[in-house]
Design a binder for these strands. Structure first.
Length: 524
RNA sequence: GCCGCCGUAGCUCAGCUGGUUAGAGCGCUGGUUUGUGGAUCCAGAGGUCAAGGGUUCGAAUCUCUUCGGUGGUACCA
């Protein structure tokens, strides 16, 4: 029996190949957004794909395997191990430095590497206790690139490698910088090509909810998390669903039983009365602030949160961001536990039809918030930070699904009618490239007169704007046949006659005028 | 992770109350056209019916397990 392991070319589950069209879309998103980020003063930072697992804020995995959604493995080289205070290497009984293999992780977002970079720069000051809260330097950077998560269930549109496009401000506790996050997101999405009506930026402040929960006697982080998680589902399951999940639990339409948190009825009704006026309301930002003021009473944390919202509102108002563009939504939660203040989410308002004709939506395309405690794990000091991230792949998917993806433009193609004329083809190609035209000479099989058709379909598949035909006929006349495929595609529906079609798109051009003629066609 | 549905050619699917050589459309290859897109017409290649076990004289069809997909649900630093 043949028990040798075989080789099959295949892609790892949850990863994907990106074709020319998607790449064009992706880079268009990145370039447009980056320009906006730069215009606000953010600098471009890149960090490695791999980091020490401990620096990413995850627990040390005990085996070299995927741990809690993070791809990790043991570094093949050995390095000194540090003492708990981080100031020195750990020593063994003989006073030798302890060496070991560190665990490395692939980054699961761009925020954790940012805090590593920031903390690394301040490290010497921190261990000398020279770092005082409130004096940490300002650092603003943007970053994009792939991040990796080991997802166990791969829903459509959810991948194990995907791109993020982040911008963050570290070192400012002023919530005006949170208002700025909204401005940047709005500018960036518009630069990418979305209309104002295509998206809504929703804003909330964790402090308001937190204070309210405290007022209700919810104090442990675990309880808090559980309740926030339920509230997060409001727009999905509605007030009734929230009522059941906070209380006794419920059965969903598939028959699955969702256990409830078992809060008592009094508390549940308090929650409901807090949220009901905000669920599906069309209050403007000022009205939400007013309504919240009545709801939160004297709770200090909530009041602080409300004041912050107020400040954000006044900045937004002066920045021309309307109540339609940015709205305050006290029911917004967001999953991540590390957010400490204002939180943001950008929701696409677009619907699309899936292949079975069902109406669907892409949902959240950006997210972010203030995370004043993130660097603390590394430096022991709170450093304020806020920022947001555009989900590049989500957004690309949205643009594709709503037919705004576009097709990547191919090069001009020089067909090969006669192999003997290859030097001439190369010469023309060189001239065209020097004239600024992307030019490909056909190298595939099917060269020659008889196989021209194959070369033409190749050009078609590659979305080439122009093809050039040069055989002995043309050569003797000192001309080149130039076919405008781009125009050909445009008139294909109205012109059905083959000969007429060819007459309209194909031109004989003198060899000497070729480059300028081609450029004329391309710039038309 | 849990529950439901599904898994037949590169793609979309038909065939399934078990019965001889498993079909279609699109795509692909060649021809129609010894130098011209899409179209037309003709021909051809391509499948151990997801994998493995069971029931049976006989399984794409029934059954079990695994894997993969999908719709919910949970999780999402």
């Amino acid at each position: 029996m043949d028990n040798k392991r075989g080789l099959v070319p295949r892609k790892i589950k949850g990863f994907r190949d990106i074709d020319a069209n998607l790449n064009e879309l992706r880079w268009n998103i990145i370039n447009k957004a980056s320009k906006v980020y730069q215009s606000y003063g953010f600098e471009h930072l890149d960090t490695p794909i791999l980091e020490y697992a401990e620096c990413l804020g995850k627990y040390m995995p005990d085996e070299d395997t995927v741990d809690k959604g993070v791809y990790s493995f043991k570094n093949p080289e050995i390095e000194p191990v540090f003492r708990a205070d981080g100031k020195r290497e750990l020593r063994d009984a003989d006073n030798n430095v302890v060496m070991d293999h560190a665990f490395l992780s692939m980054r699961y977002d761009l925020t954790a590497p940012l805090s590593r970079v920031y903390a690394e720069r301040l490290w010497t000051r921190a261990i000398k206790n020279q770092l005082v809260e409130g004096t940490a330097p300002l650092f603003r950077r943007y970053q994009f690139g792939p991040v990796f998560r080991y997802e166990t269930k791969l829903d459509p549109g959810r991948f194990r490698q995907f791109w993020q496009l982040d911008f963050d401000t570290v070192g400012s506790s002023d919530v005006a910088s949170d208002a700025e996050v909204c401005m940047i997101l709005s500018d960036a999405l518009k630069a990418i090509g979305l209309a104002q009506s295509d998206f809504k930026i929703r804003v909330n402040n964790r402090k308001i909810l937190k204070g309210f929960l405290h007022g209700q006697g919810i104090t442990t982080p675990l309880q808090e998390q559980a309740i926030l998680r339920v509230i997060d589902k409001l727009d999905k399951i509605g007030l009734r669903g929230i009522e059941f999940e906070l209380g006794k639990g419920r059965k969903d339409k598939s028959g699955a039983i969702i256990p409830g948190l078992g809060l008592d009825e009094k508390m549940v009704s308090n929650f409901l009365s807090f949220f009901e006026i905000f669920s599906e309301s069309d209050m403007n930002r000022g009205q939400v602030i007013e309504a919240l003021g009545e709801k939160i009473g004297n709770n200090e944390v909530s009041k602080e949160g409300l004041q912050e919202l107020n400040r954000i509102n006044s900045v937004l108002a002066e920045s021309g961001l309307s109540d339609e563009a940015v709205l305050f939504d006290p029911t917004l939660v967001r999953g991540m536990a590390y957010y400490t203040g204002p939180i943001f989410e950008v929701e696409s308002t677009q619907f699309y039809l899936d292949h079975k004709g069902r109406e669907r939506r892409v949902g959240s395309i950006c997210g972010g918030g203030r995370y004043d405690g993130l660097v603390k794990q590394l430096l022991g000091v709170n450093v304020p930070a806020t920022g947001a991230s555009i989900g590049v792949d989500r957004l690309a998917e949205l643009l594709t699904l709503t037919n705004r993806g576009g097709t990547a433009q191919g090069p001009l193609l020089i067909t090969v009618l006669d192999k003997e004329m290859m030097p001439e083809y190369q010469k023309i190609a060189k001239e065209l490239r020097e004239g600024g035209v992307n030019t490909e000479v056909y190298y595939g099989p099917n060269q020659g007169f008889k196989k021209l058709k194959k070369q033409l379909s190749y050009a078609d598949d590659k979305n080439c704007p122009i093809i050039i035909l040069l055989g002995s006929d043309e050569f003797e006349k000192g001309v080149v046949s130039v076919r405008d495929l781009k125009m050909g595609r445009e008139i294909a529906d109205e012109v059905t006659d083959k000969k007429e079609w060819r007459a309209r798109v194909q031109h004989e051009v003198s060899r000497t005028d070729l480059v300028s003629f081609v450029n004329q066609l391309l710039n038309k």
